[in-house]
Amino acid sequence: MQENKRVFMKPGKNNKEDRINFVKFWAKYVRTHEDEEWSRQQNMLINSQIKPRVSIKEKAEN
């Protein structure tokens, strides 16, 4: 069982540093939260840009 705890991000001094700090922050979030939790948030980003489609596997199952 992973511990679900609040993590904080250090603001960067410039855009590049801020981006890297967010990568570190998010990686820590992934490490400390359940897969279902971080992936649900990640999917909001991914699925907003990719059209849903019934997969071949799901078609076969139905």
Partner: peptide, 18 residues
């Protein structure tokens, strides 16, 4: 082992790689 919710990209990957 990753118990993630599958994204549309993951479904596409599983379809194609299968």
């Amino acid at each position: 082992t990753c118990k993630r919710e599958l994204s549309e990209l993951d479904r596409f990957a599983l379809d194609f790689l299968g």
